[in-house]
Design a protein around this nucleic acid. Structure first.
Length: 557
RNA sequence: GGCCCGGUGGUCAAGCGGCUAAGACACCGCCCUUUCACGGCGGUAACACGGGUUCGAUUCCCGUCCGGGUCACCA
């Protein structure tokens, strides 16, 4: 009955349902293997939430075996940005997320289930849209946005239980064929809508791997499937693509939960098997409420939150595996214990059970990220660190880069100093922040004394003078510290911490106090790696002149 | 507003009818100590609220509250 309408709508579509189907045969996957995808829109820089979704898809697929592909959802031409696809591919590649099939460049694809960008699949979507019109499960709609608005207003006024384009409200749903044909011939603008068979008020149970059974009303909306530009909406493209590309598991953000009934209805209308759905909780952030007191959580936002951009982590110099570790720590409660046991294993060897992923959105926690990153850095070899820092500094830190270029050996030595038995560094931008006294040629210590030094103030110049007197750059660590101890004894600073704690009143202070004077003179701070090591990074001249400068500043006040 | 999802310490998060309610991060303290750290040990701190069901509820049911999502020719 609607064959004529279908033909009028899509005169150029010659392919049939069966022919399209035959183009994409079922995959020959081993028992238990899966097929998954990551399907971003090239509308801007990569979002951390997108990376998270991609990562979980990837690890899930690796642990089950199967195929993981990259599909570009570029059906909204207004929102496209230049080089959007490249942006996505580079970001994913940088984070070690690799695909078996899909887009591999701005215009190139790899794999036999393509094209993997939706803008190139117009004919395929239209083939199935045409089919739905033929079997009367879809129809053209001529409503303008003004008319749509008018319907909405009427629904408001009538206090309709459900708003939207459906049933009686769907003005174009029951136009007679002659009218439709005439309007098409007349050149009236049209789109294609689903003729939903769902019933208002009738619920049905849908399944999600994380949330389990979800009871929702059947879809009743006559959703748009083909837009005015001939391209499909997300919903329709999802159904057609994930069927033809033989996706077994759709793992996506939880904002799609509400669309499950629509998607399932379309799968069923087209006689496609429904894939398993897994909806991932978003990464959240706390925010002060705009109107008054309290805080609320919201999703990490591209616009407001710098940490939402994956580029942020790269710029800050977080090692890639650290970011991945953190993301998976959020993604699966099983991950941390596993990582503890398998510190050197690839993250992709983790066996991910998605049903154990949390249903509530996790708050992004920088403390935790930094902790995870520090452990990661702690496990990197110094060679790896050298390579990673060099590459990073080359891109983001001219000062540090210049230091490395001119003092590669010293820089290597310095890595040992802060890396061995320490967990201070989470990201490469910490280096200049934490250790300007090693890496900044212009470094000087200002003479403002820490409060803790005040009781010792009068003695410090003399102590430093004595220290300098016996200082020998060629001393090894033991010799050097023994001399420090000698100075300590001479000034009645206790060299055994245990003894000092028992009778502090017997001494001017402890070796800890005295060491911190030297430490501060050298570095301007009281928390640093091993001093002997630092001395041999900054060199003999600086090791002497800084102490001398600090001493004379104090003495001359 | 309708519908859906969620709500265990500051954060992440085990728990799946009976526990002194794990663990990690952060914080604090102690120990170790050749300083700084690392490490070890310990501590503060939680089942949103109200009803049920049950011999017994963090766990099951209902309601309330709070948070999030969704109701587009955007994805």
């Amino acid at each position: 009955m609607s064959k004529r309408v279908a033909e009028a709508l899509f005169p150029n579509i010659k392919m049939t349902y069966q022919e399209a189907e035959a183009l994409y045969p079922p995959r020959d996957l081993p028992e238990g293997a899966v097929c998954t995808r990551f399907a971003p829109s090239p509308t801007g820089f990569m979002h951390i939430g997108g990376l998270y979704t991609a990562l979980l898809n990837s690890i899930f697929t690796r642990s089950r075996g199967g195929v993981f592909f990259l599909r570009i959802e570029d059906t909204d031409q207004k929102r496209q940005i230049e080089n959007g696809v490249t942006e996505i591919i580079n970001a994913l590649d940088e984070f070690q997320i690799h695909f078996d099939e899909g887009a591999i460049g701005e215009t190139e694809d790899s794999g036999r289930y393509g094209p993997y960008r939706q803008s190139l699949r117009k004919e395929i979507y239209q083939t199935f849209a045409k089919y739905l019109v033929e079997i009367d499960r879809a129809y053209p709609c001529f409503c303008t946005s003004d008319e749509l608005e008018a319907i909405r207003e009427k629904q408001e006024a009538a206090e309709a239980l459900q708003k939207g384009y459906y049933g009686e409200w769907a003005a174009c749903r029951n136009l007679d064929e002659e009218t439709v044909l005439k309007r098409i011939a007349n050149g009236d603008r049209w789109i294609v809508r689903l003729r939903s068979g769902g019933r208002l008020g009738v619920s049905r149970v849908y399944h999600d791997m994380i949330r389990g059974d979800i009871s929702m009303q059947e879809n009743i909306l006559d959703a748009v499937i083909i837009k005015g530009d001939g391209l499909p909406t997300y919903h329709f493209a999802h159904v057609v693509d994930d069927h033809l590309m033989r996706t077994t598991d759709v793992i996506r953000a939880d904002e799609w939960i509400a669309s499950i009934p629509l998607h399932v209805e379309m799968f069923e209308m087209l006689d496609f098997p429904v894939p398993r759905y897994t909806h991932l909780s978003p990464i959240m952030k706390n925010e002060a409420k705009e109107d008054g007191e309290g805080i609320s959580r919201r999703k990490l936002s591209k616009r407001k939150d710098p940490e939402a951009r994956v580029g942020y982590y790269d710029e800050a110099g977080y090692p890639i595996p650290a970011v991945l570790d953190y993301l998976l720590t959020i993604g699966s409660a099983d991950y941390e214990p596993w990582r503890e046991e398998n510190m050197d294993a690839s993250i992709f060897d983790f066996s991910l059970d998605l049903s154990k992923s949390g249903a509530a959105g996790a708050l992004f926690d920088f403390d935790k990220l930094n902790n995870v990153a520090k452990k990661r850095v702690g496990h990197m070899s110094e060679e790896q660190i050298f390579a990673s820092v060099s590459a990073w500094a080359g891109r983001y830190d001219a000062k540090l880069n210049s230091f490395i270029e001119h003092n590669a050996d010293i820089f290597r030595k310095s890595i040992t100093v802060w890396h061995e038995r320490r967990l201070d560094v989470a990201k490469w931008s910490d280096l200049m922040e934490l250790y300007p006294y090693m890496y900044d040629p212009a470094f000087t210590v200002d003479a403002a004394l820490p409060d803790a030094f005040l009781p010792h103030k009068e003695r410090i110049p003399e102590i430093l003078g004595d220290y300098l007197e016996t200082f020998d750059y060629d001393d090894d660590s033991n010799e050097w510290f023994n001399k420090v101890k000698e100075v300590a004894v001479r000034h009645n600073y206790c060299v055994k911490m245990g003894a000092y704690k028992k009778r502090p009143e017997d001494y001017n202070g402890s070796i800890a106090d005295l060491s911190s004077f030297i430490r501060y003179a050298l570095t301007g701070t009281t928390n640093t790696p091993d001093l002997h090591g630092i001395i041999h990074v900054i060199g003999k001249d600086a090791a002497v002149s800084r102490v001398e400068a600090f001493r004379s500043k104090l003495a001359n006040r």
